[in-house]
């Protein structure tokens, strides 16, 4: 790998993705600003990220940056075009256990689900994994049971 990506981020004006990397040959720390063109409020962020990742002029620099991360950066740029604040935009990537997800629109719910999917995949047991048991049963009845605080202060729940 000729370029070792260190950090990446966005610049809103003009819409660009900024990459800080080390050139492994010269050991020099460099910054690369990649302008994002022909990108609108309605563009498909996933596709845009894929195209950037494959872009002949940028792909060597972006080798160590995942497509998922590039997609997230595109979403931040797009949210800005849609008039959302950066704070709000970032919060859509963060799981707040007290947030009522029933109230989100499709796009924002999809982002939360993507976050949850990462946790899901981390703990997922696949059919082909050694020791996989289809009908895995664990009896939790024997465990000492404390009352859950969620049941406290309840309004006739």
């Amino acid at each position: 790998m000729r370029f070792e990506a260190k950090r990446c981020g966005v610049r809103f004006n003009p819409p660009s993705i900024v990459l800080v990397y080390v050139n492994t040959e010269t050991k020099k720390l460099r910054k690369r600003v990649i302008p994002i063109r022909n990108f609108t409020k309605l563009s498909d962020c996933c596709m845009a990220a894929e195209q950037l990742k494959e872009h002949p002029r940028h792909r060597d620099y972006l080798e160590a940056v995942s497509q998922g991360q590039l997609e997230k950066l595109h979403i931040l740029l797009q949210d800005h075009l849609r008039g959302l604040s950066l704070k709000h935009s970032l919060s859509t990537f963060h799981l707040d256990p007290d947030e009522d997800l029933n109230k989100l629109d499709d796009k924002e719910l999809a982002r939360k689900k993507a976050q949850m999917d990462r946790e899901f995949e981390r703990n997922r047991k696949h059919k082909d994994d050694p020791g996989f048991v289809y009908d895995l049963e664990v009896d939790f009845e024997k465990a000492p049971q404390e009352n859950c605080s969620w049941d406290e202060s309840d309004d006739g729940f």
Binding site: E121, K125, F132, V133, L136, E137, V138
Partner: peptide, 16 residues
Amino acid sequence: YFVSAADGTNVVKMFR
């Protein structure tokens, strides 16, 4: 039922 769709705990038992 305490279950996990990720690791499979008690999922099949519950459905059956």
